[in-house]
Every structure is written in C-alpha cells, then in structure tokens.
Computed example of a mutant assay.
Amino acid sequence: MSYEVVLAEKYDLTDLVEEISIEESLEEIACRASLQLAVTANLPTVAPGQAIRISGTPYGSTGKTDLLNPGLVWECSSTNNGSKRLSLTAYDRTIYLAKSEDERLLPAGQTASQRLRAYAKDWSIPIGTLPDTRILLARSVKRRQSIFSMVQEDLRETADKGGDMYRPRMSASGLELVRIGGNSTIWELETLEEVTQLRTLEGAVTQVKVLGNSGSDKKLSPVLALVKGETEKYGTLQKVIQDCKIESVAEAKEAAKNMLMGMQETFTVTAPDINTIRAGDKVRLNGLDLFVTSVKHRLGTPGHMELELAGEAKVRRDWCG
C-alpha cells in the first residue's frame, strides 16, 4: 500500500491497515477518514482524541503528500469474528467548528476572511493561507448555531454580493480559504468505470423576487428586484428572497441572479482514484468544466473514487441558497 498512517506522530500503523477511505463534500467543513485495522500485538492503544496523519503518493507523482493532516481520531469500534479488527473514524480539526456552537454580534464592514480568522483564534485552530475575500459584510446577529454555519453564512453573503465562492479547508499549515474551482491542476477524467447523468427541473428557479423589510404587519414588503430567467422555456418557478443583509437594489439583483437555475444537470462518476482531488476542485469530463461537490476516495493500489459533479451555475446557486 502506497499510503502511510501514523498515530500520535509516534506509531506507524501502515502495516495494520486493511482499508482506508477519505471523503468530503461542499456541505460539510471537515474531511472524514474511515480506516479498518487488523488488531495484533503490535497495535498500540487507540482512543478518540488522538492525533492521526494519513499521507500518500500523489497520483502521477512521487514522494508523499498529506491527505489528512492534522487529523483527529473521533470514534473507535472493534469487532471479533475469529479475527479482531478495529474501525476508526477520523476528521480534520475543522470538526471543532462543526460541532461547537456560539452566539455572536458581528459589526458591519468586516470580510469573511477576517471573521474566519476570529473564529479560528477563539477555537485555537492555527491559520494558514487566508486570501482577502474583499466583500464587506453587513452587521449580523448570529444566534445560537454552529461556528461552521456562521462561516457558511459569511461566505454565502460574500458570493451573494458578487464575490468569489470560497471553501474552508484544513492543511498541515493551518485553516485556509480555498477559492472553489481555483485549483491549479485541473484533471481530465478519461478512464471511467461508470458515469450517471441526471437532468431535472426539480429545484429549478426561473424567476426571483427580492423583498425588503416592510416594518409593518399591515402592508406587504417592498419589492427590491424582480429578475427573470428562462421563464419562456420552463415556465415561472419563483423563489422569494428576504434577507436583511441585502442593503441595495444592486445587491438584490446580484442575489437574485445567483438563484436563477433552469434545468439542473449533475454527474456521478466512478473512476480509478486520483487521490489529490478535493471537494470544490474543478475537473473536466467530456469537454465540460465541472465542480466536485463531493468526493470519496477508496485508497489502495489500485484505488477508486466516487465523484459528484455539477456545473458552476448550479454550485453557485446551491452555495448561495
């Protein structure tokens, strides 16, 4: 196996590993690894809370790269049906932002990257590369909710107001913000085991109405913008947006434009593993530029991967929705 698993930066578990899978999606912040180990006399005590690192040879390259680092053992379970095995679930350390709740009053004029830096500092998560997301956010009162949902609200508002889409991602150097579709290496998916294509009008939005706040229960809210898409082709499927963070007609039109979506097309791909593909990366399939919305790597020699793919318009709509 061309992979290395190290527990607590002390115990090399590589020879005991029978299966490894690593998965992540745009809907979650933390990367999750599932491992099955053979239990032998050489296996040290493994318990939740311990550090774990998974590294491997990048597809088409040499040397080793981190696939989960820093990781955290989250759950352990053992079975014995003649031969004993230990199953582990591990996450990267952004799991603390997903599992922790707080309440915040955030002033206007901050950017999503500034707010992420503050969240990470309060949870003692080191910071890596944080680009300037540039878009100034509105004042926000975040009632009891997970830190991850706060981060998502900030990134959604950034995209709603015309900024780029960013995804938090943990690396060995710390918590980073990665622009969705901004990967430098774009893989062409050529050797495929199975491809499923889905086209549907379920979830389509062809017209968006953006409302302001009426300030009264006796009259309707004012309409800030009414933006039409493919109503002639698919009929009128309207969505209404009312968000106190939208402060101008221009912002209302931008938010409405992001919500428009006619026929939705997605792909599910099973293929030989390219172990460095991450959720949020851009790939090419049959000449189409598509974004990875979720990925599961079944590591091995050979390995396999399962990808969920969608076009940029659908990813942006789901991201901003």
Rank of each mutant, 00 (worst) to 15 (best):
G174P: 11
L201I: 14
Q197A: 07
L201E: 04
V283M: 10
E188W: 07
Q264W: 07
A250R: 14
T185H: 08
E202Q: 15
K219E: 06
S173K: 08
A255Y: 09
A279S: 06
K245A: 13
R199L: 07
S221Q: 13
N213W: 10
K218N: 07
A256Y: 12
A256F: 03
Q242W: 06
L226G: 01
K228R: 13
W187L: 10
R169C: 04
V269H: 02
T191M: 09
Q238H: 09
V205M: 03
N183L: 05
T266H: 02
E188L: 11
E188V: 08
S216M: 07
G182W: 11
I277D: 06
D243H: 07
V223G: 01
I186Q: 15
T191V: 11
V240Q: 01
M259K: 14
R199H: 05
E176T: 13
R169I: 14
D217F: 12
E251S: 04
A250L: 11
N275F: 04
V283A: 12
L211Y: 13
E188S: 13
I246F: 10
A172S: 12
E230M: 06
E193A: 12
F267M: 01
K218A: 10
A271Q: 13
K245C: 11
E188T: 14
N183M: 05
S221W: 13
E193G: 13
S221D: 14
K209S: 00
A255Q: 04
V223Q: 00
T206S: 02
S248F: 07
R278K: 05
E254N: 12
V269F: 01
V249D: 04
K282Q: 12
I186C: 11
